[in-house]
Amino acid sequence: MKENPYQPWLATIDSICDEVGGQRAIKTFRLVFQDEKVREKFTFLPGQCVMVSLFGKGECFFAISSSPTQKGFIEVSVLKLGKVTSALHECEPGDVVGVRGPYGNHFDVSGWMGKNLVLIGGGIGQAPLRSLIKYVVDNRKQYGKLDIIYGARTSKDLCYTKDFAELKTCEDTNACLSIDVKEDGWSDFVGFVPDNLMRVNPSPKNAIAVTCGPPIMIKYVIQNLGKLGFSEDQIFTTLEMRMKCGIGKCGRCNIGNLYVCKDGPVFSYKQLQNIKGEQ
């Protein structure tokens, strides 16, 4: 029989980056597989996920937020919320976790070559987009214009500020940040992400829009993308569900007949319109 798909490989937490503090803290963990063979064998594409386990606490499903172009490690960004994520936030560099994966489908990075990309993220939803951004930046020549629209509640809730600083110098890349409420010293847009999208006003021509964030944001972003002329199969989103197995067996993450862990998490808006199920 083949390898046991439920058994994780051991990985060490190499470093931890505090993205956001406070009640809804977010940390990014850099994980390095202990086994060298696994390190080589483990390949993924932007959008894919891993199951991270904290032994004795449980497992959680996270989108990989680093890019496959970065070798030797993977990164996951974790919002402190439940039992496992709270325990993960207590971890320190050097602690050992379990990782299995990669699971699910991915952004169609080869199919999208030569296209303009509009990436719209909100809050922790930026995690899978970060993987895509890094991938695109590292393969800059193969893609067209890159518009990044990202927002959070306050400036303190913005993730990956370091990355955005670096993006400023990247050619043909437009990163537009926003916060919901006005703050002193904030020079970028103030307002919700869907409004920021309208302000940026990207052209639907030869473009792909990817959105990820809280459900309510996705809803209005998709509406606004429609207003801008994006068609249903130009819009992609990633979804999340409660998950246990990650491999389409435990049953809970279905939307209609599709399993988010196996058939997702990346869905085109066209696909979502056609499935009957609770999201």
């Binding site: 386990s53 032994f55 004795g56 449980g58 497992e59 246990k244 197995c245 067996k249 435990c250 049953g251």
Partner: peptide, 16 residues
Amino acid sequence: HCFDIQDETTLDKGAR
């Protein structure tokens, strides 16, 4: 066929 996965522990060991 749906299932749940949980960790059970004692002080030094555990099982999934």
